[in-house]
């Protein structure tokens, strides 16, 4: 009896392990293949059957920096992303606090925020382009920052509001009674308590802005295109430069992965928000 139950347990464990291995493979294989592509000659990538053992090369990276000027794209991405994240968090955090704790008439605004979030980006692509043209802001950092901030603020407010709502309202009342102004309640009491949630939101916004492609495509040409756009340039009339594509994809994805890895504690907190009191 005992042996049979032990065998069952072992079998179940084995099956679970197998399941997770398959899942990990499904998730990790494309990324691994992409990274490998960056370190392979183009011919090795398209050869059939696929070559897992190959002679590594940095030709793709060399092409990126020496021919394409990829550093410019990376710098553009970094500027747009950092400024956007700072602005999004700077605007959203007080707004989320107000919606969670101060305003009693926030319902309509919340619905508006949700609607802003629901509208597909492509639907506003043309108007955004026209506005940027009229304001002579095409191909500028400002245009990209403004649109990224506008797109991400609703999401950030929505997410951070949930974090603020987890702070019991009596803490605000105690602080007010102790002599805090509303701003002091926000900075001295609320922010330290929702710092984890705020960082989680910042990570999500960072990923969103860094990976943003559509508005960068619409609003930029030669001065301020971001890194995801660079990927487009490797599909030429002579074929796809797989080594450069792989190298660029590796470089574009690395900051996101590193950032997410550093902040993973907060990311988990953001994703499991509300499940644990």
């Amino acid at each position: 009896m005992a042996t049979s139950s032990k065998t069952n347990r072992t079998t179940r464990k084995l099956l679970w392990t197998l399941f997770w291995c398959v899942l990990a493979f499904i998730y990790l294989f494309p990324y691994t293949w992409m990274v490998l592509t960056g370190f392979r000659h183009g011919v090795d990538t398209i050869s059939m059957p696929p070559r897992f053992i190959f002679e590594p090369t940095l030709a793709g990276f060399k092409h990126l920096f020496e021919v394409t000027g990829f550093q410019k794209y990376i710098i553009n991405s970094a500027v747009v992303t950092i400024v956007s994240v700072v602005l999004v968090i700077g605007v959203s955090a007080p707004a989320a606090y107000a919606l969670a704790h101060v305003s009693r008439r926030g319902g309509a605004l919340l619905v508006a925020i949700l609607i802003a979030r629901i509208i597909p980006a492509i639907a506003i692509g043309v108007p955004v382009y026209l506005i940027a043209t009229r304001l002579h802001q095409l191909d500028t950092y400002q245009a990209l920052v403004v649109i990224n901030v506008a797109v991400n603020i609703p999401f950030a407010i929505w997410l951070m509001r949930s974090f603020f709502m987890e702070v019991h309202p009596t803490l605000r009342e105690a602080a007010i009674s102790d002599g805090c102004s509303e701003w002091q309640v926000f900075t001295k009491i609320m922010l330290p308590l929702v710092l984890g949630g705020m960082l989680a939101t910042a990570v999500f916004v960072f990923i969103g802005v860094w990976n943003e492609f559509l508005f960068a495509l619409i609003l930029t040409t030669s001065v301020s295109p971001t890194a995801p756009l660079a990927m487009l340039g490797f599909r030429t009339q002579y074929g796809v430069q797989w080594d450069a594509v792989g190298a660029a994809a590796f470089l574009v994805s690395t900051p996101v992965i590193v950032f997410a890895f550093i902040m993973q504690r907060y990311l988990v907190q953001g994703m499991t928000m509300g499940s644990v009191k």
Partner: peptide
Amino acid sequence: PAKERDMAIVFQNYALYPH
């Protein structure tokens, strides 16, 4: 305003600042 009333309130859930 509350902060100028010079009244100190003790709440049911204590409302201590956790940090």
